[in-house]
Design a protein around this nucleic acid. Structure first.
Length: 406
DNA sequence: CGTCCACAGGAATGACGGGCGG
DNA sequence: CCGCCCGTCATTCCTGTGGACG
């Protein structure tokens, strides 16, 4: 037994090492920052001119950057900061870039921790209050004459978690500083974020706004082509494959991350199958795999009753045009609860659950009136049923319902 | 042409668990 | 460490409504 496992592993290792598909798979990963950012020249130029005053030791305006996922916001900001920092070194100007992703560091204290790290101050992980942390950070920063360029990526998470208090503090930090200055660059894909922001913060933070439009299919194709050249062995991907990835991602909303994911996963599938080259069928498989992963993730975190409602929908949409209605779902859902011996929630709640499922994109609903026979929502599945079925069977309660009628 | 079905969906309220500030 | 507040899931009660049917 043991030698067998080792043999298998050896084979896997060897295959990975002498991959005939990939040269450098990492350049297709979402966190990779490329040396060139095609089709974002305009945004690079704008951000560059906004931040350029830092090179003269002046405080640039705060910037707010909007754009849907995969439109290159993070990449552009990181790129511009890198170039700016290099130039500053050359000129002997003190610029301190600081990148914080507030999805990971989503508390005031953790943000302050990161800020301090950027100015070379090590704060304890715990033990001091946030105001003390702020005081110490400011004290160190004020020993310098520097422009601190603070990027707060996915800033909506921070605001949702702790409100806009630190933003206010930071935007008013010049009151506490004599020589140094802090510029804030906020990044978000939530276009209506500013609405629920303290007006004082809004005006100081949104001094300048930059919008990143989605890429179109042609631009995506160009991006993929450049990236594929570095990522793959020559001749293993050809144009139709890349065009397909671009077209599929453009259909979403021009999400470059999505396009790159597709290409990478397609390559991984091709490799797993021991294929010579990446074919369009691998892309379709990749699409299904990525979709299934997302469905899995969404469903896994759902509460039990949402899963049961989803199961009810799943079973009711089998056959007959794949459509069902709220009333049918509720009745069927109640029988499922009865089988499990648990209490059911009210119809009002199920109505909301159906709405929530619609929001996640797993199902599609539309309100219609059947006249004499009342008003209801027509429900149909929006993703492959086997993906849902597999995700639901992960749940220990729900899976009892499967094994029974098997 | 008015009714009335079968829900949609708003408002108020409560149980519960987790995180935060003092 | 404790009380407090907040978000989530849920209930109760409610008003609103498009259009087939009588």
């Amino acid at each position: 037994m043991q030698p067998n496992i080792i043999d298998v592993l050896d084979k896997i290792f060897a295959n990975t090492l002498k991959s005939r598909i990939f040269v450098n798979r990492d350049v297709l990963r979402p966190d990779y920052i490329p040396d060139e950012l095609p089709h974002r020249e305009e945004q690079i130029a704008k951000l560059g001119s906004i931040l350029a005053p830092a090179l003269k030791g002046a405080k640039p305006n705060n910037v707010f950057i909007y754009g849907l996922t995969g439109t290159g916001k993070t990449a552009v900001v990181k790129y511009v900061l890198k170039r700016l920092y290099a130039k500053a070194l050359e000129l002997g100007v003190d610029i301190i870039p600081c990148y914080i992703n507030t999805r990971q560091d989503d508390t005031t204290y953790r943000v302050l921790l990161k800020l301090s790290e950027c100015v070379g101050l090590r704060l304890p992980f715990t033990g001091i209050s946030t105001s003390e942390a702020y005081r110490r950070f400011i004290k160190v920063l004020d020993t310098k004459t520097a422009i601190m360029l603070t990027v707060l990526d996915e800033i909506d998470f921070l605001i949702k978690r702790v409100g806009d208090e630190i933003l206010y503090r930071l935007s008013r930090s010049s009151d506490d500083l004599s020589a140094s200055k802090i510029t804030i660059i906020g990044i978000t894909n939530d276009l209506k974020l500013v609405e629920d922001l303290d007006p004082r913060v809004r005006s100081s933070l949104g001094e300048i706004e930059l919008v990143f439009p989605p890429y179109n299919a042609i631009q995506l194709e160009d991006i993929l082509t450049r990236r594929a050249k570095i990522a793959f062995n020559p001749e293993v991907v050809d144009k139709p494959v890349i065009s397909l990835c671009a077209a599929l991602a453009a259909r979403e909303h021009g999400d470059a991350r999505r396009a790159l994911d597709l290409l990478r996963v397609a390559g991984e599938i091709a490799e797993r199958e021991g294929a010579e080259r990446v074919a369009t069928e691998h892309v379709y498989k990749a699409l299904r795999e990525i979709e299934a992963d997302q469905v899995n993730e969404v469903i896994a975190t759902m509460p039990l009753h949402s899963k049961l409602v989803l199961l009810a929908i799943l079973e009711l949409t089998e056959g007959k045009e794949g459509k069902t209605t709220t009333g049918e779902v509720y009745t069927h859902y109640k029988t499922l609860c009865a089988k499990l011996g648990i209490e059911n929630v009210t119809q009002r709640r199920v109505s909301d659950i159906i709405g929530e499922l619609d929001m996640t994109g797993i199902i599609t609903t539309r309100v219609i009136s059947r006249g004499r026979y009342g008003k209801t929502r027509v429900i149909s599945l929006a993703v492959p049923r086997d993906a849902i079925l597999r995700a639901l069977s992960e749940d220990p309660y729900v899976s009892q319902l499967f094994s029974r009628h098997r």
